[in-house]
């Protein structure tokens, strides 16, 4: 029986497999041409620095990056911002998603619509809207002054908090979407069963719900990490000039400092960090597919 089971797919493979290969050929080629090939070129180029007029293999580019105070500060700042943004996103979106999952009222539908709204606003428009709102003499400052008379408002615009606020705002819709989708997969019975054996709200959240939406949390983490670590528009328009996130930093190194080698090294480092998270994400997706079959 085992032998026949092993052989049958082989005979069938040829037709179906060719259709499948044909279908993935186009995206696969595009990926190779537009991502894998230039990325490999870049990685190789950063490993072949020009020393005294000759290009040869060496780690000088990376030594330069990691011995340069500004570069290291910017990298740490980027990772720190990314962590803060993802933390804030979970802190904001988990309650929203939980509320949406466990309430069925017209208010919930409105909240859902509102949470998704930023999805339809382009980043650059969002940036200028935020400047008008939280910037100096912006709506928020005026409002606080008029209503409370308090004059101590200090704008987060052009400070680390500026880019964090912008990126959190931008990340809310996708995070809420992913988390509500994950929570929708948690059957009511499992929660009721937990209440039945005596679990309170917090125990249900930490012992039942969180473990059951682990995969959604990972997806939300990965997508936000990838989006934020390479973000350009919002940190460029809202964030500080120093320290800088990697996106604007690369751009400045390339156009203003006119050091393409250093910019490329920064890009490769950002890319490698993203790949780690991308790898975790893909591994979890593959594992899930295996479990389902």
């Amino acid at each position: 029986m085992e032998a026949s089971q092993l052989q049958r797919p082989k005979a069938k493979l040829s037709k179906q497999a060719w259709v499948a290969y044909a279908l993935i050929a186009a995206p696969f080629l595009l990926m190779v041409l537009l991502i894998v090939y230039p990325a490999s070129l870049s990685i190789v180029r950063t490993l072949r620095p020009e020393v005294e007029g000759v290009r040869r293999f060496g780690l000088e580019n990376y030594q330069a990056f990691f011995s340069d105070h500004t570069s290291v500060t910017n990298l740490i700042f980027t990772l720190w911002s990314t962590g803060a943004i993802i933390g804030l996103l979970f802190a904001i979106c988990l309650p929203i998603a939980l509320y949406l999952r466990f309430t069925d009222s017209w208010i919930a539908h409105w909240v859902q619509g509102l949470a998704l709204f930023p999805l339809f606003v382009p980043g650059i428009i969002l940036a200028y809207a935020l400047i008008r709102f939280i910037g100096p003499n912006g709506l928020l400052e005026t409002f606080i002054e008029v209503t409370t008379g308090w004059q101590g408002y200090r704008t987060p615009y052009l400070k680390p908090a500026g880019s964090i606020i912008g990126l959190v705002w931008e990340g809310i819709p996708i995070t809420v979407l992913i988390l509500t989708a994950g929570l929708a997969q948690v059957p009511d019975n499992l929660i009721e069963a937990a209440r039945d054996v005596g679990a309170g709200r917090l125990q249900i959240f930490f012992r039942i719900i969180l473990p059951l939406i682990g995969r959604s949390l990972l997806i939300a983490f990965a997508l936000n990490f990838l989006g934020v670590i390479g973000a350009f528009t919002l940190p460029y328009l809202l964030g500080p000039a120093a320290p800088q996130m990697m996106g604007p930093f690369m751009q400045r190194t390339f156009y203003n400092v006119l050091n393409p080698d250093a910019a490329e090294t920064q890009a490769v480092i950002t890319f490698l960090l993203s790949s780690i998270v991308g790898f975790l994400y893909v591994r979890s997706a593959v594992r899930q597919q295996k479990e389902e079959t």
């Binding site: 019975n189 499992l190 009721e192 069963a193 039945d196 005596g198 679990a199 012992r207 059951l212």
Partner: peptide, 30 residues
């Protein structure tokens, strides 16, 4: 009384066990 304070225990038709917990943990949880 809320459900977690009632001296009743329920067995459901579907999705009865917590899938991320072993049999031992499912029974031990309460």
């Amino acid at each position: 009384l809320p459900p977690n304070k009632r001296p009743t225990a329920m067995v459901f038709q579907k999705y009865t066990l917590w899938p991320h917990m072993t049999v031992y943990k499912n029974i031990a949880f309460g």
